[in-house]
Simulated scan of single mutants.
Amino acid sequence: MAPKPAPNDALSENRFVADKLDEVARLLDQQNASLFRVRAYRDAANYLRGLPHPVRLDYQRGGKRGLDDLPTIGQSIAATIAEILDTGRSGVLDRLRGAADPEQVLRTVPMIGPALARQIHEDLGIETLEALEAAAYDGRLATIKGIGPRRVESLRHSLADMLARRRPRHAPIDRQRPSVADILAVDLTYRSNLDQLPKIKPRRFNPNDEAVLPILHTERDGWQFTALFSNSPTTHRFAKTRDWVVIYFERADQPEGQVTVVTEHGGRLDGKRVIRGQENACAAHYERPEK
């Protein structure tokens, strides 16, 4: 966790957070994201620079909800600010820079060392603490060799403590997600326009330090999407670098989520694009008559 700043540094921390939000806006603009999304980050940055008190106080008093209640700041940007205050980093910014390192994020959890972080990321495709918490409850984490029931329970408690301030006090029972149809449409748009999309320089698996990874920012039905090919060790091992697509989504009133879309091999969905973990929903989608 990032150290609490001294009183005379408190407002400079506001500027530090604002600078990172401004960089997110700049990169989104360069990568052809919607003007609405770019402006949202810029407006939040400008607001923090003019805030007469440390934004950390709002976070300490009200958690992520305390940030969400501030003018110009919705849930997704509140989550970004909370992450910066907690860690000094932003996963959104790292992703846009091509510098995302999910294993480093996972290693911030007690009892998760480098080897286990790598295994969790490679086997389950987990990149965020929120996704790790979901896996701890839905049974996926228990499938990792060496993680028994007691360890899963301990990880649940650790994650609950780490994420407590980042989540709303009264979180909805069912978190909203984009429809299967919208996610698959974004996947198709991404793969159909690779030559026209801006490209970023991934830090990993990029020996020539070139801009080689296409990135798409788009919106559908009120959701903001970012799509790019998976660049994980598993993707490279199985030669799926031009097949597996990671899609991030967010909305002003919903925190960020992510899914991975792959080509299914075998079974009733053979050759179809499917969302990992949502195979049944994808089957139902394909079975519906076209309008």
Rank of each mutant, 00 (worst) to 15 (best):
A2G: 06
K4R: 13
P5D: 13
P5I: 10
A6K: 11
A6R: 10
D9M: 11
L11C: 11
S12R: 12
N14F: 08
F16G: 07
A18Y: 02
E23Q: 12
E23G: 07
A25R: 01
L27D: 06
L28A: 13
D29P: 03
D29V: 07
D29H: 10
N32P: 02
A33L: 08
A33P: 05
S34P: 04
S34C: 10
F36G: 08
R37M: 14
V38Y: 00
V38F: 00
Y41F: 14
D43S: 12
Y47M: 09
Y47W: 08
P54F: 01
V55N: 00
K64G: 14
K64L: 13
G66C: 03
L67I: 08
L67G: 05
T72S: 11
I73A: 04
I77S: 03
I77C: 03
I77R: 00
A79D: 12
T80K: 01
I81G: 02
A82D: 12
L85T: 01
D86W: 00
G88M: 01
V92W: 02
Q104E: 14
V105G: 02
R107H: 09
T108C: 03
V109Y: 06
I112K: 00
I112S: 05
I112N: 02
G113N: 11
A115P: 00
A115G: 10
A117M: 06
A117E: 06
Q119C: 02
I120V: 11
H121C: 03
E122P: 00
D123W: 00
G125Y: 01
G125H: 02
E127C: 02
A131C: 01
A131W: 00
A135C: 04
A136I: 03
Y137Q: 12
Y137N: 10
D138V: 06
A142F: 02
T143C: 05
I147F: 07
R151L: 15
E153F: 01
S154D: 12
L159C: 04
D161F: 05
L163C: 10
A164M: 09
A164L: 06
R165A: 13
P168Y: 04
R177C: 12
V180N: 05
I183E: 08
L184Y: 02
A185K: 02
A185L: 06
S192P: 01
L194Y: 01
Q196L: 07
L197P: 04
P198I: 05
P198W: 03
P198M: 07
K199D: 06
K199I: 04
I200A: 03
K201C: 11
F205K: 05
N206G: 08
P207W: 06
H217N: 13
R220I: 15
G222H: 09
G222E: 13
W223Y: 05
W223M: 06
F225D: 08
T226A: 11
L228I: 09
L228V: 10
F229Q: 04
S230Q: 11
F238R: 10
K240Y: 13
T241L: 14
W244Y: 13
V245F: 05
V246Y: 07
E250I: 09
A252E: 15
Q258P: 05
Q258H: 13
T260A: 15
T260W: 09
T263G: 10
H265R: 15
G267K: 13
G267T: 12
R268P: 13
L269Y: 08
D270G: 15
G271P: 09
R273L: 15
R273H: 15
R273G: 14
N280I: 14
N280C: 10
A281M: 14
A283W: 12
A284S: 14
A284M: 14
Y286W: 11
R288E: 15
E290F: 12
